[in-house]
Design a protein around this nucleic acid. Structure first.
Length: 310
DNA sequence: GGCCAGGTTCGCT
DNA sequence: AGCGAACATGGC
């Protein structure tokens, strides 16, 4: 077992705590991503073995830097380098929100959000496949139920890595989900249709018919077309992936019910806006709509919006 | 018990 | 093109 530590320096305003606190990292019990005591931990598949990667930010405000620790067997120079690159991307350490912040200064809706969440970057999933599985899994169900399903597949189909006295899970591979099969997923709280989507996509990826990681190299339009050609992936899911997996700064899931309600609340006299309406409205926030979406959802999670009604 | 939740597909007008 | 139903589950 080897252990190495590295330092990484993101933009001055970067805040690891806010970033890890957001989205899927927030749940203390999300079984692949653990955020506890100021440290974010996650198992990554780095050839030839999987590694446990820990990230912390010793001084949140001054002399901004983050510390990355990598533990695992057979750590080669290149595998460590790969790990660092990947984890930096995942915690958004290489992002630059300055354009978004500048735009928000003269926007009375965004201003309070930026004020509250200043330093929050957009967390990225470890792989495009993982992002896609999580997005489909989370379609149309509450975040709470999504969390249950998430833990379920991770514990059941992810591989295990032991470090010290602790056991960690990795995210399930395409092969393992394909192997699980529709019937078994259906028997485990998934709707039959959702189970079909996941197995179909897992099979395509594991057989090499599609290469989801390649989406990073495509023009946005082509990436969206490829994604929505998959069964189970519509506009909402494709836009979600642009934001959370592909690092695109101008994604906007206009089909999102919560977004429609919130924007309707603020800009349409309390009446919910249609998908088409918020799409047109959102043009004012180009080309930073991924940031806008992320900050709105951060606000939603913290109870900034009172959308429970209507 | 009924309704809905950070959607998508399929079948009908 | 546009509309509505079905899909499974947990929470209020």
């Amino acid at each position: 077992m080897t252990k190495t530590t590295h330092v990484f320096r993101p933009v001055e305003s970067y805040n690891l705590h806010k970033t890890c606190d957001f989205g899927s990292f927030s749940r203390a019990k999300y079984s692949t991503d653990i955020y506890c005591g100021g440290a974010y931990k996650r198992v990554l598949q780095c050839k030839p073995e999987s590694k446990l990667v820990s990230v912390s930010q010793p001084q949140p405000t001054h002399h901004n830097h983050i510390e990355i620790t990598i533990e695992g067997e057979k750590s080669t120079e290149s595998s460590i380098k790969h790990c660092i690159t990947q984890i930096s991307r995942m915690i958004g350490a290489d992002q630059d929100p300055s354009g978004f912040y500048l735009m928000a200064e003269s926007d009375s809706f965004l201003n309070p959000l930026v004020d509250k969440f200043f330093g929050l970057h957009i967390p990225q999933t470890a792989s495009v496949f993982e992002g896609l599985v999580l997005a489909i899994l989370g379609q149309q169900i509450s975040t709470h139920v999504a969390g249950i399903l998430r833990s379920l597949i991770v514990e059941r189909y992810g591989s295990i890595l032991s470090v010290g006295n602790e056991t960690y899970h990795s995210f399930p591979s395409p092969q393992s989900l394909e192997l699980a099969g529709v019937e078994e997923l259906h028997a485990n709280k998934f709707s039959r249709r959702k189970a079909e989507y996941l197995c179909e996509i897992s099979a395509l990826e594991s057989k090499g018919t599609i290469h989801l990681e390649n989406l990073r190299n495509l023009a946005i339009e082509d990436a969206v077309n490829m994604l929505t050609s998959l069964r189970g992936v519509g506009q909402w899911t494709a836009q979600w992936l642009l934001i959370r997996s592909l690092g695109y700064e101008d994604g906007f899931p206009s089909g999102d019910l919560a977004l429609q309600k919130i924007l309707g609340d603020y800009f349409n006299g309390g009446e919910i806006m249609s998908e088409r309406e918020i799409m047109e409205f959102s043009a004012r926030w180009r080309p930073y709509r991924s940031w806008v979406t992320t900050y709105i959802f951060a606000g939603l999670r913290c109870g900034v919006f009172s959308v429970a009604s209507k």
